[in-house]
Design a protein around this nucleic acid. Structure first.
Lengths: 199, 199, 199, 199
DNA sequence: GATGAATGAGCTTTCATTCAT
DNA sequence: AATGAATGAAAGCTCATTCAT
């Protein structure tokens, strides 16, 4: 196996740290923990990321970029907004099941540890890739007349809060059914909430 | 002024700690910080709460009990489910504005630091007071035929995720409007999502 | 033996740290070293001094105050400037022999580690007690006509540089004679340098 | 431009390290800092100097040799001791102003970090070039009858301590006048201190 | 000679918790 | 109930030095 480039190694570190942060928490995961996970020395970690905080910020950008590109594929499809909602819910839950670290990191690390992301991720600047795609989805739906023209954040909060809430409940193991069995209900609820008023 | 009872002092400590945890974070708030806030000694704090984790768990129970009693008042009213949704959204946002620590604690401390609440607050047992009232609201709406009969968690996730998401966006200062100006939009969205199918 | 007050304990710590810093160097003395010397825990050290740098600054103030009070006694005597020079040289060398840490700290720690004393000890503000007494000695000598009226710093540099240099040579063990055997020569040299021109 | 020889490269490294050590301190300057300053790799640095300590020792020898050769020029002149004192003070201050790193290194790095120079620079063996010239100056002055015959170190301490002290005060920015404006005062003071007794 | 990733010991500092008073 | 000094494990981070390439 070829020696990874510095950039590839950075990504490996981010993935390892992502896994630990999302399962163990930011403050309860130590740099030695991460180093051990990656079978490298503590000192060498710092050749790739200057501090624990910087590592955390790079990870959220990485996730935002990944999720944004998934959403972009959906936005590029020639389908109705209703179908897009269905697609987005599906891909979100699929990600939550197959790469649970990503969604968990988003919900539990990024959204909750304000002090960590304060400098450098103000507002939503570390998650623009992702937010932008939701915005595009929404605005196109409004333009085509399929979605009601309401404040974007009101729609965004519904979308993200709802999906995040469900994944959270899933993570808490309080859902009686499997996560993906909720897709239809939820898509329906979201569509009902966002669709244009019937004449 | 009379010397507070032990129980009253416990409540004072919880309120002080709640304020600090929700504004500064759980791990970035130290026991000495809390002691100073309450003008008492570190050692004496431990006469009231045996550990920092236990304090955190007592606080979430306290909040759940408070919010539950607010919801109970709404549930007891003789109004439609649509009106109840409106009432709930209002009281939630009102709390977020007037006692922001409570909602912040719920969103940022309780939901995010799994490792802290793992032992003793599994599932939703530290927030039953609150969840129960949402459940009562929902089941009564279904029984009366006003709300569609769907999986409770699908509805609960919508409600809580949506409201939480909006308060989060508010906290991030990305909302262009004042939080309470979203009440109508959101209530409408939620009602559209939950109401029984027409005809 | 009675339990020392917090202030007395601070002084004990300063004396222990002074000894270690001056013999081992600032950067080569660690906080654990100091704690061990004082038979206390590392953590408790920080209950007395918030940082290693602050400890270093408090020590130089302590030394300046000590040496200043010794000089004050000489200044208060009703003797000639020539005799005062003799007294100062004596007390300086005596201190260098009996409390060598103090002079060593002054020369090797305070004067050399600018980055440590930069914030909080700018100019000579942490050694004013000491400098002030030298200034008083000099100005009184000038006023009485016994010393030549020259720039104070030119005289101060002579005094302090000369004495410091000798103690340094002593510390390097390159002096063929015992330190105190130089007192007369040096006092003479200083007096020759500072005395008013004959006419 | 021709590729520098190994010896020339060693000198370049010493000059770069000298600059950093004297402005930033020995312990606060890292090998990577020096490597970056010289636009070479860390590993390659070690092809020229086996350790940081060895580098520090080579630098003081280099400085001693440089200053020694400057003094030699003065010693070789056919002038009085009084004039030589004047010349030495001038060249010392001139160096302090034009190559401040050298004097700073001497005062703050070499004289203060005993532990670094302990092995290999005991006594004055790394600064003999310089000390020897001062010794020659002094002994010739005594032989010619112009200077009083006193212990060499008593005279040496005066000379070096005084000049070092003035440069130190200059570095601390507490001197009200420019450094070179003190030349006459200081030369005069030194001459008064060293000259043979009148009679 | 040259590179810079890698090592790992060791540093300063923090903090939940205990305990003598 | 109350105090706050004391503990000590562990955290984040640094850096002289090595070594494979």
């Amino acid at each position: 196996m070829a020696k990874p480039t510095k950039e590839q190694k950075r990504e490996l570190i981010m993935l390892g740290a992502l896994r630990l942060f999302s399962t163990e928490g930011f403050y309860t995961t130590t740099i030695p923990d991460i180093a051990k996970e990656l079978k490298m020395s503590v000192g060498n970690m710092y050749n790739y990321f200057k501090s624990k905080d910087i590592l955390a910020k790079e990870i959220i950008k990485y996730i935002s970029s990944y999720l944004g590109s998934e959403l972009r594929k959906i936005n590029d499809k020639d389908i109705t907004s209703k179908q897009k909602i269905d697609n987005i819910v599906k891909i979100y839950f699929e990600t939550a099941l197959q790469k649970p670290e990503m969604i968990e990191y988003f919900l539990r690390i990024y959204l909750s540890n304000r002090e960590v992301f304060k400098d450098g991720c103000e507002g939503m600047i570390c998650v623009t890739d992702f937010v932008t795609e939701i915005m595009i989805f929404f605005e196109e739906g409004v333009k085509s007349g399929e979605l009601r023209d309401q404040d974007f954040f009101s729609a965004f909060g519904l979308f993200m809060g709802y999906l995040g809430g469900m994944v959270f409940l899933h993570g808490e193991k309080v859902l009686p059914e499997k996560l993906d069995s909720y897709v239809d209900d939820i898509s329906h609820n979201i569509y009902q909430a966002l669709k244009a008023d019937e004449n």
